[in-house]
């Protein structure tokens, strides 16, 4: 009975994974894609992991359950940081927002970051130099 509950958990996680990947294909620019994909796939994978942990604990498979919980914590902590780093890198390397965007408050700050990098003389990618 309780086991079936966790199987439902895994099923919902799989559906979220699929929606995240559909979003990755359908949405128009990098920032929107990163949003949909990161949110849905992180929660989906975490739900799969929690379901596996629950089934492991019910079957007295403590090692599998504990590892699944640790892995869920890792995914939950690392995935938003990765999305943030990619979006920041994308903006600074000069990928434009989608044409339907209504506001852009980051442009000034990005320019400041680029000039700081140029004056520091650190390793530059070609995109950062040309923009």
């Amino acid at each position: 009975m309780l086991e079936n509950f966790f199987y439902v958990f895994i099923g919902v996680g799989l559906v979220f994974d699929l929606f995240g990947c559909i979003g990755l294909v359908r949405l128009p620019d990098v920032y929107n894609r990163a949003q949909a994909a990161t949110k849905c796939v992180t929660l989906g994978t975490c739900m799969i992991l929690i379901g596996v942990a629950g089934i492991g604990f019910i079957g007295a498979n403590w090692q599998m359950g504990l590892k699944a919980v640790i892995c869920a914590a890792f995914v939950l902590l690392t995935s938003p940081v990765a999305a943030h780093a990619i979006c920041r890198g994308a903006y600074i390397s000069g990928v434009p927002l989608w044409t339907g965007s209504v506001e852009d408050a980051f442009a000034d700050r990005a320019q400041v970051i680029r000039t700081q990098q140029t004056t520091e003389g650190s390793v530059q990618s070609e995109e950062a130099e040309t923009t």
């Binding site: 996680g13 799989l14 990947c21 990098v30 894609r33 989906g44 992991l49 990765a82 890198g89 390397s93």
Partner: peptide, 25 residues
Amino acid sequence: SAPDRTVAIDILGTLVVGFCCVMAL
């Protein structure tokens, strides 16, 4: 663009974790 591919690679990595879970089950 390159960031699009990077996002997709990151997501693919997370999906592999899901694969491993189902295989463990």
